[in-house]
Amino acid sequence: MIAEHFMVTKVVTAQAKELTSHVLDKMHHHKLRMLPVVDEENHVLGIISSFNIMQCIVPDYLVNGDLNQISYAPDLGILRERYKKIVDCPIQKIMDTAPLFVNKNESLLSVSAALSAYGKHEYALVVDDEKHLQGIISAGDILGRLKLKASEKNNA
């Protein structure tokens, strides 16, 4: 089985100049946690995820300063202040510009291995040689497909 057979092709996308607040609304409306960011010609520029946005809200010094367990600190209101700033920024400032790309002819095994090795999130973008977006594959899609195959085998 190849990627083309189990990728999702109806993809909700975002534009780089869209405000974070607008993208968050879009994610909430479509019950999605990640959107590919594309230009007018459907070339992939990156992805924006709820995890991305949260990472931008958390001050970097808390993550990279040997302080990632700050159970000693009360709620300082830092997150609320930074959230207010971030939601008014265009997503091009915070999007992940190095998403995982796969080809539509790659096998299920190849895509699964690439996702596992990637480790940052559970989505792979299916693109052609010119990085035109063709679809998305998530870890959930792969597991769903495996479950379907297993039940088909049992029924047979």
Partner: peptide, 14 residues
């Protein structure tokens, strides 16, 4: 400074 500077930023933020 690797250990004190982040606490300092947390405190000045507070």
């Amino acid at each position: 400074v690797l250990l004190i500077a982040p606490v300092t930023l947390l405190i000045t933020d507070a």
